Amino acid sequence: MDAFEGRYGNLVLLATAVGDGEEAVTPADLLAAIEARCGVLQSEVSIEVACPPHDLWLLFSTEEKCTVVLQSSMKFKCCRRWIQFQRWVRETRATPDALEYKTKLSLEGLPDQAWSTQSVKSVLKDLGGGLIEIIRPKNRRELEVMAWLRDPSKVGKMLDVEIVEPKLALCTDPPPQSVEEFVAVEMASSYGPSSPRKKKTLVYPVICHIKEVTDHGPLLAEDLPDAWLPNEGEDLTRTHKFSTRLGKVDGHED
Rank of each mutant, 00 (worst) to 15 (best):
residue 3 A to P: 00
residue 4 F to S: 02
residue 10 N to D: 15
residue 12 V to I: 13
residue 12 V to Q: 02
residue 14 L to D: 02
residue 15 A to T: 05
residue 18 V to L: 14
residue 20 D to V: 02
residue 21 G to K: 08
residue 23 E to T: 14
residue 26 T to Y: 05
residue 27 P to M: 07
residue 28 A to P: 00
residue 32 A to L: 10
residue 32 A to P: 00
residue 33 A to S: 14
residue 33 A to F: 03
residue 34 I to F: 08
residue 34 I to P: 04
residue 34 I to Y: 05
residue 38 C to Q: 09
residue 39 G to I: 11
residue 39 G to Q: 08
residue 41 L to G: 14
residue 43 S to H: 08
residue 45 V to R: 07
residue 46 S to K: 15
residue 48 E to Y: 03
residue 49 V to C: 06
residue 53 P to G: 09
residue 54 H to G: 01
residue 56 L to H: 02
residue 59 L to Y: 01
residue 64 E to T: 12
residue 66 C to A: 15
residue 67 T to Y: 13
residue 70 L to E: 05
residue 75 K to T: 11
residue 75 K to C: 05
residue 76 F to R: 03
residue 78 C to F: 03
residue 86 Q to L: 09
residue 89 V to N: 11
residue 89 V to I: 04
residue 90 R to Q: 08
residue 91 E to G: 00
residue 93 R to A: 01
residue 94 A to S: 07
residue 95 T to G: 00
residue 98 A to M: 01
residue 103 T to D: 01
residue 104 K to G: 02
residue 106 S to M: 05
residue 110 L to V: 09
residue 110 L to M: 07
residue 111 P to Y: 03
residue 115 W to H: 15
residue 115 W to I: 05
residue 116 S to Q: 10
residue 116 S to C: 08
residue 123 V to M: 08
residue 125 K to H: 05
residue 128 G to Q: 10
residue 129 G to F: 04
residue 129 G to P: 04
residue 130 G to M: 07
residue 131 L to N: 01
residue 132 I to Y: 07
residue 133 E to A: 11
residue 140 R to M: 14
residue 141 R to I: 14
residue 143 L to Q: 15
residue 146 M to A: 02
residue 147 A to Q: 03
residue 148 W to S: 09
residue 152 P to T: 04
residue 154 K to Q: 15
residue 157 K to S: 15
residue 157 K to D: 12
residue 157 K to N: 12
residue 162 E to W: 05
residue 165 E to S: 13
residue 173 D to H: 10
residue 175 P to C: 06
residue 175 P to H: 06
residue 178 S to M: 09
residue 179 V to Y: 12
residue 184 A to I: 00
residue 185 V to F: 00
residue 186 E to F: 07
residue 187 M to V: 06
residue 190 S to M: 15
residue 190 S to V: 07
residue 194 S to P: 02
residue 194 S to G: 15
residue 195 S to D: 15
residue 196 P to Y: 06
residue 199 K to M: 11
residue 201 T to I: 12
residue 205 P to A: 03
residue 205 P to E: 03
residue 208 C to R: 02
residue 209 H to L: 10
residue 209 H to C: 09
residue 212 E to A: 08
residue 213 V to N: 12
residue 215 D to L: 10
residue 217 G to T: 05
residue 219 L to Q: 09
residue 220 L to I: 05
residue 221 A to D: 13
residue 222 E to H: 10
residue 223 D to E: 15
residue 224 L to Y: 04
residue 227 A to G: 08
residue 227 A to K: 12
residue 231 N to P: 00
residue 232 E to A: 12
residue 232 E to R: 09
residue 241 K to A: 06
residue 241 K to W: 00
residue 243 S to K: 13
residue 244 T to F: 14
residue 245 R to T: 08
residue 246 L to T: 04
residue 248 K to H: 13
residue 250 D to V: 03
residue 251 G to A: 03
